[in-house]
Each structure stands twice: as structure tokens, then as C-alpha cells.
Nucleic acid binder design. Sequence first.
DNA 1: GCACAACATGACCCCTCGGTCATCTTCTCG
DNA 2: CGAGAAGATGACCGAGGGGTCATGTTGTGC
Lengths: 218, 218
Amino acid sequence: MTGRTAAVQARSDSVRNRRLLLQAANEAFAECGVDVSMHMVAQRAGVAKGTVFRHFPTKDDLLAEIMMQLLDRLLETADRLLRADDAGRALKDFMGHGIGLLAADRAFCDVIGRPSLQHTNVREAIDRLCDTVEDLTARAREQRAVRGDITGTDIVLLLGGIHQTAQPLLDREPRAWERFLEIAFDGLRARDRPALPHPPPAQLRMADPSGVSAPTRT
Amino acid sequence: MTGRTAAVQARSDSVRNRRLLLQAANEAFAECGVDVSMHMVAQRAGVAKGTVFRHFPTKDDLLAEIMMQLLDRLLETADRLLRADDAGRALKDFMGHGIGLLAADRAFCDVIGRPSLQHTNVREAIDRLCDTVEDLTARAREQRAVRGDITGTDIVLLLGGIHQTAQPLLDREPRAWERFLEIAFDGLRARDRPALPHPPPAQLRMADPSGVSAPTRT
DNA sequence: GCACAACATGACCCCTCGGTCATCTTCTCG
DNA sequence: CGAGAAGATGACCGAGGGGTCATGTTGTGC
């Protein structure tokens, strides 16, 4: 997408460095979260700091590229699960997949958690993902696998929440989130219970052009 | 506890400034989390930066003092609820109280979320809180208000998780966490369900003298 | 009201971070 | 192989953070 379309041929060392950088950034972001320094990324890739900025003009650009890969894969999984027979199972599988990604990548948590720092295409990818989760949830609702007042937004929010719940246990038991996914899903499934407090949350929109929910905080 | 016990009398302006500082720091930490700068705190209190460091030698000292107030109040609530008749109701009330505090104080979330930066007395207070929650949970378990394989650690972890779930909705609906507390509690209550995956998590200990789980990351 | 200790102040130090750029190196093409 | 452009490098910049300290100010006991 970036190198060989036009007449200009990318130099071999440039291509190699770009690959090394993406790999190093992937690991560094996953381990340390978005606050990892560009110097650290450069060091991991075995190049100088300036080289990082030659390939990715800002830290946000680098982060966006990496997050897009993650989101694309997750979106692909969601699309595939949309065609499963057992919609309840599919929804739970999707949640497991998403939480697994969160558990393996601190930067992904940071990006999902606070929309403060973001590229437009990442925001749009997240919106697309929310749409698909809405569909997944609708199917589960129709098949009575979850209660009638659960929305896709509930599910999206629960992803971050369930991961956060299990996070202190991550060192000792990397898959501890399965326990809490089970508890949460039992709650989602509860029939014969009074209506939930508060109306179902409105759909989260990160990439609205009206600029209403622009980043406000530090 | 800090000023008037010994022979030395604290000067009036010093006492006033200390009060102003604690109040300002409370607000600043609550709004911006632990990453708020000491300069910001000083500004809010209407004093110079040096004054902050005269009263609190390090940022950690200031943060610890504020967190201790919060934890003491929460611990008091937990102790009171331990004497309620309906143990299930008491446990849920406690969770509501805790999540409400998390929703109102970003620094509290930060401190609970990652134990990286901490004073010993804060760690001990958290441990005491965990003990009390363990008791609260045991009573609820005995009264069959929650399933038999739920521990106090589950509950403590769920506090942060439920808050995190609702956090993106905080601006529009400050009490949105009630919806997710309801869902989670329905899950905790689920009878006739297969056993949860993974054994109940071991109790979290923040103040262990063996220094095993010392802060490792950045 | 005086003297002095305690206190308040903000310029300053050192550090880290994202980002820049003059300079040097290396790949590529003829 | 040689020229030249694309790429790599790391010293450097400004912002902002926690923390310090010489200096100026003020409350207090005599």
C-alpha cells in the first residue's frame, strides 16, 4: 500500500528498517502501552531515533498503523462469527477473542480505553467494529441467548471492563479473564430479572464529523 | 496527626496552606488522575510550588495522604455493612459505594488499577479493605446470595472492572455503572450453572514484606 | 515592637519526551 | 565504478515534569 505503486522504488534497507520498526513497535506498544518512548522503539528495532520519524512522521502515525492491523483482524473475526449458527456462542467467542487481544496488548487497552489520542481511520475502524458487534448482539438477542435489553454498546464496553477486572491476575494466570467472562455472560443471559437500570447506552461514535466529543482532557 | 502533638506549634498560615493544599490536591487528583502536575496542584491551592514540597516532600506523600482518606472512608463503610442482615444486599451496596468512588476520582482508579506507585500504609489499607470484602463475600455466600465459588478477590477485582465498563459513559450518565453492576451481580448470583473456569483467584496482597511483587514495569 | 525561626517563593537543576535537521552513509542505476 | 539521491544518524531543541534552595516574607513569643 505504501511502497511500490509509484515509479519510485523503495530502497532495500528502507524496506527492511520499516519492517523491523513495525515489529519492534508492535512488541514495545504491546508490552508497555502507548506511553513507551520513540527512543525505546528505535532501540528495539536497532535503528536511530531519526529513522523512526522518517518512516512515521509522528508517534500517532506509528501507533495508528499498528492499531489498524489489530482492529482489522478483530473486525475480520467479528464478520466471520456473524455467520455462525449459534449466535450466543458466537457473541461469547467474539468477546473472548477481543479480551484476549486486550490482555496481550497494553496499547490496545489504552487506545480503546480513552479516545484522547487518535487517527481518523482508527476511529472509523472502531466505529465499524461497533456496528458489527451491534449485529452480533442483535442476533444473540433474537435467539434469546442474551436478555432483550442488551445492546452492542453494552458488549463493547464489557470487553474493556472484563479485561480490566482480570488484569491484576494477568501475570499469574494469563487467561484469568475467562472466569469473569463467564460471570458476565451469566449476567447477560439472566432471564426472569427486573429491567436494568438506565436505558441501553447509545452507540459509541468516535469518528463523528461534528466534532462534539473531541478530546478534552490532558 | 501531624501538626500539634509535639512542643512545636504550627504557624497559622502553615496550617491554612496545608488545608488548602489537601483540598486542591483532592480535586486535582480526582479530576485528572495521578498524572496531574505538582505545579497544577500548587496553582489550584493558590500557593507556590515550593510550598507544596514543604508540606509533602514528594508527590507520592501527597497522593498517599489523599488516598488514605478515601480508603479509610471506604473501609468504614465496609465495616458497617458487615453488620447488616441481608448480606447479599450489603455486598451489592458496598460494590455500589466503591464503584461510585472510582467514578468520582480518577486518581483512585489509577492507584487501585496499577500498584506501581505506592506508600506502605496505602498498601496496607488496601489489604485491610480486601480482608473486609472477603468477610462481606463470605456472608453473602453463606446466605446463598452469590454462588459458592465467588471470593472476595472476585469482588474487589470486579469493582475496577465494572467502573471501567461504564467509564466511557461517565460524561453523559454519571451513574451508568449501575446498569453494569446489575448485570454483574446477576452473574454472581447465577445458580444452576457449571463451575467457573480457573480456581478462585488468590487473595491480592499489596504489602507483602517478601517484596516478590515489587513494581517491575515503567 | 523587636528578633528570629518558621514559612513561602519562584528561579533553577536535571531528566525525559516528541520532534528536527545538518551531516554522513549506503543503496541503486547507468 | 562512480555519481547522486534516498536514507540513516544522533546532537540538538523546546516543553514540561519532579524536586531543590538561596532569598525574601510573616507570624509569634518575649
